[in-house]
Amino acid sequence: MENQEQHIINKGESVIAIKRLYKSFEDLHVLKGIDFNVFKGENVAVLGKSGSGKSVLIKIIVGLLKPDKGEVVVLGKDIDKLEGKELDALRLRIGFSFQSSALYDSMSVYENLAFPLTMNFKHLGKKEVDAAVMEALDAVGLTDKVRQMPSDLSGGQRKRTGIARTLILNPEIMLYDEPTSGLDPVTSSEINELINEVQKRYNTSSVIITHDLTCAKATGNRIAMLIDGKFLKIGTFNEVFDTKDEQVTKFYNYNFIQ
């Protein structure tokens, strides 16, 4: 598989390094001491059931949640120790595509895309912003929707717009939270292709949070199986699923039989 071969070539410089990460919400222990690395240029799909802590993991990576214990080093910086401008500067290098797309309802597609740019680079002129917006929309194939409002877009178009909004800042790392949830198989497959396209075009390293095996297989150079707050297996798709472990086989059978 091309993706898996590429993973072996790129393995080297780690862009995300997580050591002994713990996170609880009151009595609910979500992450129980996980270790995890993402290497430059690779896509890692984190698979797991709903409520297994996948979204919590990427929210910790981007600094939206604080870990209880452990170390999260992103692009060489311990994100838990960053505040203010340092944290903002690091976040500009990370793109986050939300499960719900999180488009600003009161803004048009153009304004949604221009927002992070104008807020962070106030010196930019209208022509430069226009060009950046059109380039990002071109990357996701939505140049014709530039004047529309988020409410006029379909689920797939909303996801694409959400991805375009993160691409406008040229991120080094992309974090996708359930990119195919709530989409039909055809649109899901288009989003999977887009994730791979983004990796090639922008040379990003990505973490794809999903419970969809097809998405994980199509996009992930490596798969990390998160079960009960710990990574049960990390490796290529075949390495992870070539097992007799009941928890893994159950997940595999359920997805593909479905």
């Binding site: 600094g63 976040r91 986050f96 939300f98 600003y104 807020m119 962070n120």
Partner: peptide, 13 residues
């Protein structure tokens, strides 16, 4: 609820 505030935060706003 729709994570728009989180989206703002992660885009350094």
């Amino acid at each position: 609820v729709t994570e728009q505030i989180d989206a703002m935060e992660v885009s350094s706003t």
